[in-house]
Amino acid sequence: MSENKVITMRFRVSVEEQKQIEAKAKSAGLTVSEYVRRVATGQAVAERLPAELRQVITGVANNLNQLTRYAHLRQFDDRAINEILSVLKTALR
C-alpha cells in the first residue's frame, strides 16, 4: 500500500492475543501494524524461515547445482558426487 496512512484504528485484545500477534508479526518480518493490515485485508503473510533453515536450504540448492553441472558436463567424478550426496543426506536429516 503506497497511500498515506492517516487513520488510526484502535481495538482491544487480551494479553495472550497481543503476544500471539506480536510473535506472528516478528516471524513474518513485519511490524505489528503492517501484519494486522495484511491479515485484515486478506493479503498474504508468509513466515520467514529461520536463518539456520535458510542456510541448510541454500547449501542443498548449491549441492544440487553442482550435481547438475557434473551431469551436464558428463563429468562423473564418483568421489565428488558421493561427497555431495553425503552432505545432502546429512543436511536433510
Score class of each variant (00 low, 15 high):
Gly42Val: 00
Asn4Ser: 12
Pro50Val: 04
Lys24Met: 11
Arg10Gly: 07
Ser27Ile: 03
Thr8Asn: 04
Gln43Phe: 05
Glu3Ser: 11
Leu53Cys: 05
Arg38Gly: 05
Lys5His: 00
Ala91Ser: 13
Pro50Thr: 05
Val45Ser: 03
Gln55Val: 00
Gly59Asp: 14
Arg74Val: 00
Val87Tyr: 06
Glu17Asn: 11
Thr31Asp: 12
Leu88Arg: 04
Met1Asp: 06
Ser2Tyr: 03
Ala28Lys: 07
Val13Gly: 04
Arg38Ile: 04
Ile57Gln: 08
Leu64Ile: 11
Ala44Ser: 12
Leu88Trp: 01
Val32Thr: 15
Leu49Pro: 01
Arg69Lys: 15
Gln55Ser: 07
Tyr70Ile: 02
Ile84Phe: 02
Ala44Gly: 02
Leu92Lys: 13
Arg10Asn: 13
Ala46Arg: 15
Arg93Tyr: 07
Lys89Asn: 13
Leu49Ser: 11
Phe11Ser: 06
Val15Lys: 13
Lys89Leu: 07
Leu30Tyr: 07
Ala61Thr: 09
Leu49Phe: 09
Ile84Leu: 09
Leu67Tyr: 03
Ala44Lys: 15
Ile57Cys: 01
Leu30Ala: 06
Asn63Arg: 04
Gly42His: 02
Asn4Phe: 05
Glu22Phe: 01
Leu64Thr: 07
Phe76Cys: 06
Glu17Asp: 15
Glu16Ser: 10
Arg10Ser: 13
Thr41Tyr: 07
Thr31Val: 08
Pro50Ala: 08
Gln18Thr: 03
Leu92Ala: 09
Thr8Met: 02
Thr68Phe: 01
Met1His: 09
Val15Ala: 12
Lys26Thr: 13
Ala46Gly: 05
His72Leu: 11
Leu85Ile: 06
Arg48Gly: 05
Ala25Ile: 06
Lys5Thr: 01
Asn63Ile: 01
Val60Leu: 15
Ala23Asp: 11
Ser14Arg: 03
Asn82His: 10
Leu67Asp: 04
Val56Tyr: 06
Ser27Cys: 05
Val39Phe: 00
Ala44Thr: 13
Asn62His: 06
Glu16Gly: 01
Thr31Tyr: 10
Tyr70Ser: 14
Glu47Gln: 12
Asn65Glu: 03
Ala91Phe: 00
Asp77Gln: 04
Lys89Asp: 14
Leu53Ile: 15
Thr8Tyr: 00
Val13Leu: 07
